[in-house]
Write a protein that binds this DNA or RNA. Structure first.
Lengths: 332, 332
DNA sequence: ACCGTCTGCTGAATCGAGTTAGCTCAGCTT
DNA sequence: AAGCTGAGCTAACTCGATTCAGCAGACGGT
């Protein structure tokens, strides 16, 4: 048998005629020699390495975002691909270096990822290669991107409270500067859902999305004699801080105050009572991004992945209210 | 100029004589064309891809272990290498598949990693390739491995308490089954250090290394009228559970009870008061593993990486004790 | 008998580097 | 002047696949 024939059989090409007998012989021989094609040689000829480059700012900071990498790796493997990973730590020079190194190794495409959802601009070189943006938003609408559906997540959180019977005295905890996509979208979703039910936030507490600032801010809120019936915390760390302040004030969750949150990090199930949280779909994000990248055509456009509510024990019906509260007046 | 000459100049080989003038011309041309060698072609010839395969059981579960990947990726980049990552989820078939896929792509070596330190046995194929075990221990002493120095970590935790003035009424929280390396080593280190100061653990509380079981166990301990002056928690999640139980019992940290812990996960700095914890050196682990892998020879043997104490606010001098306690009697 | 067509295969080029063997020419020796 | 040496270079092969172009032989039609 000639190499040509073997090649056609093994790569499964049907555009050359091969007898059943010859095909059997080739397969038999391949099995006996436990033949493995040399992918470097193949890549040299075909320019296809069955390899994807994942370029991200940080893989470890927002620790549980590793799920994103996990989804990508697993899905790539399903499609016989392997993933290179590269971390830029937000440094443009490192980014350029990483991208070039991947290009030199002939990656078939890129996943350009951010650990916090945000607007981002991939380096110019990538315009000439298949790219899917993962957890970040492109400036150019022809670029394909996958992000969590934060707007809907906001609605989901608000709905959870409404369905439990809350309507007034709902406070938002966490700042929402315009450049933080998750914050503004979640807030928009919350507002939309509440206003559809003819109600609105009783106020909001500005603080960084960390336990300590959230603790201080909620403590302050309570000190000013506000009596929230529910808190919507913009992430689980904020909820953690809120828990600390509520517990210190002798308020019971969920009897006195209900709490919903976002992210569904590990923390959510560690808190007492366990925290109801709208989950970031990190695993699914990674999965979809790879699927889009490996699909025939990249159409462009942003795909939003649903964020499901993980309903636990921090939401209950509002308590009967006694007088003397200041709730209702906007707080800022 | 011939391709040969160019090749010799650009790969920096000095075993052929090349005039300074020729060298200049080659370099000039390379710069003008912004020449980048095709690494696939090079790999085909040299069998060197400047690529490392990282095979691990899970990259995301113990979330902050992503630091390990981070250290490895960054160090690989420093040495002009790129990292493939593969996740097995503990499935031997997947592992075999991942290793084979990496081999097909010609990786120069492997990092065989576990997210929890444990004994592990890499698949047989890997015996014929350079491997460094990362955060896991080989059966074969000729294999090179990098693990945290848990024994010393145990000493460090104990010393922190001794130096604060604790000597008696120190309890361990968390189970230590023989197959859990971190647990047994930490305990051994603690015992060694305490006994050198002529003291010993007052008792230990058996529970899984999670907040909920730890909460229940410490609560039980207090209900049985034990009055610990300090707790050594086998990880931060356990400490979290302990915090919840102590606070519920009205005990103040660190005034009434000091707490030290292990891992230094994000949680440690989120707790109130912030938790003193002996840090897992994940970043350094990843770094060292790559350095060893890329060094000339793999000598075999296990390298232990120091675990530093992150001293925060959960340890203080013991309070003056009042009567009526049962401390001192072993608890199990 | 001749031509054309289809089937089933093969030889040789190709991808882009690294590597080996050997060639040319200058300068020096004898 | 012939011979040797070494400096400086190049032609051709190699890695292991894919792929292009084409070649036998069978078969059918006229």
């Amino acid at each position: 048998m000639s190499r040509t024939t073997a090649s056609f059989v093994l790569t499964g090409r049907r555009d050359m005629r091969i007898s059943a007998e010859a095909e059997q012989r080739v397969r038999q021989a391949a099995r006996e020699l436990s033949y493995r094609p040399n992918l470097m040689a193949r890549a040299l000829r075909t320019r296809l390495t069955h390899t994807i480059g994942l370029v991200s700012d940080t893989i470890a900071t927002e620790a549980f975002a590793g799920e994103m990498v996990r989804g990508a790796v697993a899905t790539a493997l399903l499609h016989e691909h392997l993933l290179f990973i590269g971390e830029t730590e937000g440094d443009a020079a490192v980014e350029k270096r990483v991208v070039q190194d991947m290009l030199d190794r002939g990656v078939d495409g890129f996943l350009y990822a951010a650990m916090y959802t945000r607007h981002a601009r991939p380096p110019a070189v990538l315009r000439r290669h298949p790219v899917v943006m993962l957890n970040c938003l492109p400036a150019d609408p022809r670029t394909t991107a996958v992000v969590p559906d934060e707007l809907d997540a906001g609605r989901t959180a608000a709905r959870a409270l409404l369905e439990a019977g809350h309507a007034e005295h709902i406070y938002l905890v966490g700042e929402t500067p315009p450049e933080v996509y998750a914050g503004t979208q979640r807030l928009a979703g919350i507002r939309e859902c509440l206003s559809q039910q003819g109600t609105a936030l009783a106020g909001s507490v500005d603080c960084l999305w960390w336990p300590e600032p959230a603790y201080a801010a909620v403590r302050q809120l309570l000190a000013e004699d506000h009596r929230p019936s529910a808190l919507i915390c913009l992430n689980d760390r904020v909820a953690f801080g809120a828990y600390q302040a509520l517990q210190e004030a002798g308020l019971s969750i969920p009897v006195d105050v209900s709490v919903v949150s976002f992210d569904d990090s590990d923390l959510a199930s560690w808190l007492r009572p366990q925290l109801s949280s709208v989950a970031l779909p990190h695993l699914e994000l990674g999965r979809r991004a790879v699927e889009l990248l490996l699909a025939e055509h990249l159409d462009g456009g942003v795909e939003h992945v649903r964020m499901p509510l993980r309903d636990r024990a921090s939401v209950a019906a509002p308590a009967a209210r006694r007088g003397g509260t200041r709730a209702g007046r906007p707080h800022r």
